[in-house]
Amino acid sequence: MARREETVRMCALTREEKPVAELIRFVLGPDGVLVPDTEAKAEGRGVWITLGRQAVADAVKKKVFGRSLKTEVTLPEDLPGLTGQRLEQRFLAALGMARKAGQFTYGATKVRALLEKGDLIALITATDASPDGRSKMVGPLKALHHAAREDGVEGFEIPHFELLSSEQLGLALGLENVIHAALTRGAAAQAALEKAKRLARYSANPGQDDTDRPAADGDVLPDV
């Protein structure tokens, strides 16, 4: 069976075509205010920007949204911050769904047991975890990756995310003291993993080197 081609869109800031997984869409709300469409499902005209906080900040600074949409655009006071919050909310909601599906485990002892068996698809550590506690999780994770390389297993990777504080995780999940957690196998956990990857990319992406090149009027068309 032929592999399905990945959908691509053009970043209105850099004018590069990229897979939608590497972009984030923005749309105009009914009130004319631009909002992040994190699931890329909202109706109306949209603008795609490289998935990165700096890229969104650059797009605001260079007035990319109004030029691309060819209309007056009202921007939130802190669009990069709002976008990050929306991505965090989607990630936390997905974690909640994974927990309900029995595909989310928390607590140092339980997570270490999963690490020993390699029975997880992602390791999650709170940003305020102690260095010692963190090392007790990262060590076994590195050992798993090393063993896979020694066995010649290609493409084996269990990502490690440090995206939110224990308080943020606990409040969203209705739990206390969520420092160490893991996603196990299943559709709900896989959905949470994808949202974690998007949040991590957004937080870490430094923007592109060519964003200082000014856009020419009319050379970027929004999707409809």
Rank of each mutant, 00 (worst) to 15 (best):
A2I: 06
R3I: 02
R3M: 05
R4L: 12
E6G: 05
T7W: 00
V8K: 09
A12P: 03
E16I: 00
P19M: 07
P19H: 14
V20Q: 08
V20Y: 07
A21W: 09
A21N: 15
L23G: 10
L23N: 03
F26D: 01
V27S: 04
L28Q: 06
L34D: 01
D37C: 10
E39F: 12
E43G: 12
G44N: 04
G46T: 02
I49E: 03
T50M: 12
T50L: 15
L51K: 10
G52E: 11
R53F: 08
A55H: 09
A55C: 13
V56D: 07
V56T: 05
V60H: 10
V60A: 13
G66Q: 03
T74A: 15
P76F: 14
P76T: 14
E77Q: 15
D78E: 11
D78M: 12
L79Y: 05
G81C: 11
G81L: 11
G84D: 05
Q85S: 09
Q89W: 09
L92M: 09
A93D: 11
A94F: 03
G96K: 05
G96L: 08
M97H: 10
M97D: 15
A98W: 03
K100R: 10
G102H: 05
Q103N: 01
T105P: 02
T105D: 05
A108E: 13
K110M: 12
K110W: 07
V111G: 04
R112Y: 01
K117D: 06
K117N: 01
G118E: 09
G118R: 11
D119P: 02
L120H: 01
L120T: 00
L123Y: 01
T125S: 03
A129I: 15
S130N: 08
P131Y: 08
G133I: 02
S135W: 10
M137L: 12
M137D: 03
P140N: 12
L141P: 01
L141D: 00
A143P: 00
L144T: 05
H145N: 06
H145C: 07
A147V: 00
A147M: 11
A148L: 13
E150D: 10
E150T: 13
F156L: 11
E157C: 09
P159F: 08
P159D: 07
H160V: 07
F161V: 04
E162L: 11
L163E: 02
L163A: 09
Q168G: 09
L171E: 08
L173R: 03
L173M: 03
L173Y: 00
G174F: 06
E176A: 13
E176H: 01
V178T: 00
V178Y: 02
I179A: 04
H180E: 12
H180N: 05
H180K: 00
H180D: 01
A182F: 03
L183E: 00
T184C: 07
K195T: 13
N205Q: 13
P206Y: 12
D209I: 14
D210R: 10
T211P: 00
R213D: 03
D217S: 11
G218C: 09
D219Y: 03
D219V: 13
D219L: 13
V220Q: 09
V220Y: 02
V224D: 13
